[in-house]
Design a protein around this nucleic acid. Structure first.
Length: 646
DNA sequence: TATATCCGGGTTTTT
DNA sequence: CCCGGATATA
């Protein structure tokens, strides 16, 4: 039936080819782990452009992570040599921001994106301001409450009033009021605003509906309500959508992801064709079968069954350790043997539920001179020195940015303490003015001590001077100027982590040099740059493949990756599944996480658990994870002592 | 205002 | 056990 021979569909199975070339219907691709879904997505875009003559600018490809977006972009670039930047490829948030920015800029409205830490900070301030006990209402919990509302597109005014008269709601109300007033956009707000933009401006909506002939969405299982609404707006009967997802790999439920939206799509979009990609190209059969058995214990899932043409391969090793040290030694030993046999360390990964579990492993690995790389998510933007510089830049763009103001008012230390700040805060509260304006008021009234008065006047002069002097500078020069002028370097010099900070600042300068947009003024570029680094807040692990080292990471972080040798440690009740999730509905999510972990392995999987473990300094007896028991014994090779398990 | 000490709480985290 | 935040002290 398919007679076209082409590189884009070479070596692909029939289902994959169908997913790449069919355009009569909307497509829902239910793609299991390792079934080649990224390849399908990339080749479909290539196909649309090269074979069907679809213009790059009428394609929108949405992903959840910048990493994925970049990967897709780079892979397309290999095949398509023209106008590739016209394709709208990006995360939900970055594409939504792009739409918003184009519009807001015309209205001269400023968008200040705020990250998690700033959100928490703001919530904390508000909680205190409302005389609500911070211990009873910890800001982080409040943030989850707010974000959850926003995941459903609900502003305070959209919440049901009689139910929502509690303290959390009152914090949310004030929080949202502040955000609106000062132009703060948390991540949820970007999506809500873009939705509202399209609702209120049919002409803009129509423009995008006409523009995007093809919408492709990856990792659809992780979509939340407001993201769904946005897509639904842009999609109408004339454009085609392709959705790829695997509900078994939904591990971000706590962030508003709803697997049920996959079901919803079937009823919302008629004329949708479902394609199952179930052939796995990654793992040996034992691993696949074990994974299938495990995930089958979940009740809420779309039934599918991974299969492979590969041989059974090695059995899954199960090691029962005395304690975490023994566990680490066993794994280190395994890796030593692999290394001795010429195995590249790059092909080994040690996965765990909690980052803290890596400590013992790291200790033993380095004792044995085995290179390893610990991957975590300490984000570039979250680094102190980056935030400090950025805060100065933010104040320069918008003096009423209270969050930035609070960050830099005494950084570097200039002798402004909590008392002075409180006084400024009081005026701000009374006059309903920003901290910057309140500061100016306070200086005119001689409320403060002479010393503080002088310091603060100097502060104002400093900010004004920076603003004046960087006006016509290039982006990297602007950043450089701020670094020097603010004397932040001197402050870092006193600490022993000075070297790392300098490295990070260099990295920042490097980023600014790469960031270039034609035909807009210098402050506008700065503005876009600041948004860019929050929205692309990821470590660039560009030497990930190059360095020969064992990779250590959480299972969450391993999603999308694959390794010949995978070790999953801490397979114990209370660790994995995590203590918090025992006996509630997120247990199924834990199981999906286990499924993700297992399916990372190409050739060999090793599971370990310990009989006792230090938890917060106390030695505790532990029991093997239920997930081990959910794998039939015939796929397992017991290294030692399985009795405990039975 | 800046530093010293105590206390409690402690998953995962694509944006 | 180890970190960050809140309180006590120089």
């Amino acid at each position: 039936m398919i007679f076209i021979k082409d590189n884009l569909i070479k070596n692909m199975n029939e289902k994959q080819i169908e997913a790449i070339i069919s355009i009569e219907k909307n497509l829902l691709i239910l793609a299991g782990a390792g079934s080649g879904k990224t390849k399908v997505l990339v080749n479909r875009i290539n196909w649309l452009i090269l074979k069907l003559g679809v213009s790059p600018k009428s394609i929108m490809a949405v992903t959840f992570s910048n990493k994925a977006a970049k990967e897709i972009y780079n892979r397309i670039k290999k095949t398509i040599k023209f106008n590739i930047n016209d394709i709208w490829i990006g995360t939900f948030h970055s594409l939504a921001y792009k739409m918003l920015y184009l519009h807001y800029n015309k209205l001269k409205k400023h968008i200040q994106i705020i990250g998690k830490e700033e959100q928490i900070n703001l919530i904390k301030n508000i909680t205190i301001k409302l005389n609500i006990d911070i211990k009873k209402f910890p800001p982080i919990k409040t943030m989850y409450y707010i974000n959850n509302k926003k995941n459903y597109g609900l502003h305070p005014k959209d919440c049901v009033k009689n139910i929502e008269k509690d303290k959390l709601f009152s914090i949310y109300k004030l929080y949202q009021k502040k955000c609106t007033k000062y132009g703060y956009f948390d991540f949820g707000e970007i999506l809500i605003s873009v939705n509202n933009l399209l609702i209120k401006n049919p002409e803009i909506l129509n423009k995008y509906i006409k523009q995007f002939k093809h919408i492709l969405i990856d990792e659809f299982q992780d979509i939340n309500n407001i993201q769904y609404k946005w897509i639904k707006q842009i999609k109408n009967k004339n454009n085609k959508i392709m959705i790829i997802g695997d509900d078994d790999q939904c591990i971000y439920g706590w962030r508003g992801a709803e697997t049920t939206l996959i079901e919803k799509i079937k009823s919302d979009y008629s004329n949708i064709k479902i394609i199952y990609l179930e052939q796995n190209y990654r793992s040996t059969n034992n691993i696949i079968l074990a994974a299938n058995h495990l995930i089958n214990n979940n009740n809420n899932r779309i039934k599918k069954k991974l299969w492979t043409k590969k041989k059974p391969g090695e059995l899954i090793s199960l090691y029962s350790a005395i304690n975490e040290e023994d566990e680490a030694k066993y794994i280190t030993n395994c890796i030593k043997i692999l290394k001795y046999n010429g195995f590249s360390l790059n092909k080994c990964a040690i996965l765990y539920r909690k980052n803290i579990q890596s400590i013992v492993i790291e200790k033993i690995l380095s004792k044995n001179n085995i290179n390893y790389e610990f991957l975590n998510t300490i984000k570039f933007y979250n680094r102190k020195e980056i935030k400090d510089i950025i805060s100065y830049l933010r104040i320069i763009l918008n003096k009423n940015d209270d969050i930035a103001f609070l960050r830099i008012i005494n950084t570097p230390k200039r002798g402004i303490g909590i008392n002075t700040i409180n006084k400024i805060n009081e005026i701000s509260k009374k006059k309903k003015k920003s901290l910057w304006r309140s500061l100016k008021i306070i200086l005119n009234k001689n409320i403060l001590k002479k010393k503080q008065n002088l310091i603060l006047k100097k502060f104002i002069v400093l900010i004004n001077e920076i603003k004046k002097n960087i006006k016509n500078l290039k982006l990297y020069e602007q950043v450089n100027y701020v670094i020097n002028k603010t004397k932040l370097l001197l402050m870092y010099k006193k600490k022993d982590d000075f070297k790392i900070r300098i490295e990070n600042l260099k990295e920042l300068i490097k980023l600014t040099k790469k960031f270039y947009i034609k035909n807009i003024n210098k402050f506008e570029i700065l503005k876009l740059f600041l948004s860019h680094i929050i929205l692309n807040n990821n470590n660039e692990n560009n030497n990930f493949e190059k360095k020969d080292s064992v990779k250590l990471m959480s299972i969450h972080l391993s999603k999308g990756l694959e390794f010949d040798q995978v070790f999953i440690i801490g397979m114990e009740e209370g660790i994995f599944p995590h203590y918090y999730t025992l006996n509630n509905k997120s247990l199924e999510e834990e199981r999906r996480l286990a499924y993700v972990g297992i399916t990372r392995a190409k050739k060999k999987l090793t599971l370990t658990y310990t009989k006792e473990r230090y938890l917060y300094g106390i030695k505790k007896k532990t029991k093997p994870s239920r997930f081990i028991k959910e794998i039939p014994l015939k796929y397992i090779e017991i290294i030692n002592n399985y009795k405990v398990l039975l």
